[in-house]
Computed example of a mutant assay.
Amino acid sequence: MSNSASTIPPVSAAPVPVAPAARPAPTAAELGAAMELIAKPRLDAYRSFFNCSTDVELIGAYLWGQAVAGSFQPIVSTYEVVLRNAVHKHASLFASKSTSESHPWYDHTRPEALPTKGKSRDKIDDLLYEPPSAGLRMRRAVQPSPDQVVASLSFGFWPNFLQGLTKFQRQKILHEIFPYYPNGSPKHWSFDANVNSLIDTLKKIQDLRNRIAHYEPVWKPHRLTGSERHWSQAVLGLRNEHARILDVLQWCCPATPVLYKVSFGWRAFNIICTTAAVQAYMATPFAPYP
C-alpha cells in the first residue's frame, strides 16, 4: 500500500515581500500639466482652506483629500449592505406575518405590500415591469426574486422607504431593524420626532456616500457642521462622520463594528484621517505611505 502522504506536494515558503522600486517625483512640468487638468477652481478650494503656500503643498492636500475619501469606502459599503439587508429581512417578516425573511413586500399589487411612492415606487416598477409601450406597462414574464430586487435598489431608497412607513408599521419594523438603538422601544418609534431624527442620520450618511461616489471633497465645511474654519477642524468633523456610521451599525448589529475594527479599513482610516497625515501629505506628497 503506497503512502498517500508522499503524493502531497511540499508547502512552499511564503515569498518575501519586495518593496516596489522608488519612483521619481514628478517634474515641475508634469506637476503643472496634472494640476491644469484637475482644474484651477477645484484646486483653489484646497489652496484656500489648507493655506497652501506652494504647489507641492497644494497637490499634497489634494492627494490627502482623495485618500481620506477612499478611506471611508470600507465602512460605507459595510453600512449599505447591513442596512439594506436588515430592512429587507424585517420588512419581509412584517409583510409575510413572520413566514419569510425574503418576501416581496415592495410589490404594490399585493395586499400586504408596504408603502412606496414617488421615485421609490418608480424604481420598483422598473424592476417588475417591462419598459412602457404606448402608455402601457406589462408585467415582466420572469419576475426578479426579492433578493434581486433589494440588491438593485439604490442607496437612497432605504431612508425614503423607512420614512414612508405608517405609525403602526414603523413601531414594529424600526424596532426590529435597530434593536440596539438607545431607548428604541416600539413606542419610541411612534413619535414623529424620533423617526425624523433617525432618518436625518441616515440621510447624512447617504450624502457622505454620494460625495465620495461623485468625487466631491468630503472635507468642505458646508458638508460637515458648517463651523469648521481650519482644516484640522474638518479632520475632526470627518472623524465624527465616521463615528456616526459606526453608531448606526451598532444599532443594527453590534458584531459588525467589532469585525470592522479588526479590518484594514479601520486601520487605514485611522492613519489617514488625522492631522499628522495632512501635514505629511503636504510636506512630502510624493513619498510612499503605509
Score class of each variant (00 low, 15 high):
2 S>L: 15
2 S>E: 14
6 S>A: 10
18 V>A: 13
24 P>R: 15
28 A>G: 13
30 E>K: 12
31 L>H: 08
32 G>Q: 09
33 A>R: 15
35 M>E: 11
40 K>I: 10
44 D>M: 05
46 Y>F: 11
53 S>Q: 14
66 Q>G: 11
66 Q>R: 12
67 A>M: 13
68 V>W: 01
74 P>S: 02
82 V>M: 08
89 K>F: 11
92 S>H: 12
94 F>E: 06
101 E>K: 14
103 H>D: 15
107 D>C: 05
113 A>M: 07
115 P>M: 07
116 T>S: 12
121 R>H: 13
125 D>Y: 09
132 P>D: 03
136 L>M: 14
139 R>G: 08
143 Q>Y: 02
145 S>L: 10
150 V>A: 04
180 Y>G: 04
184 G>L: 04
192 D>G: 06
194 N>P: 09
202 L>H: 02
204 K>N: 12
205 I>G: 00
213 A>T: 00
215 Y>F: 11
216 E>A: 12
219 W>R: 01
222 H>A: 11
231 W>T: 01
232 S>E: 11
247 D>I: 03
251 W>M: 05
251 W>Q: 08
256 T>R: 09
256 T>Y: 03
258 V>P: 00
259 L>C: 14
261 K>Q: 12
267 R>I: 08
268 A>N: 13
269 F>C: 00
273 C>E: 00
277 A>K: 05
285 P>W: 04
286 F>W: 13
287 A>H: 08
288 P>A: 03
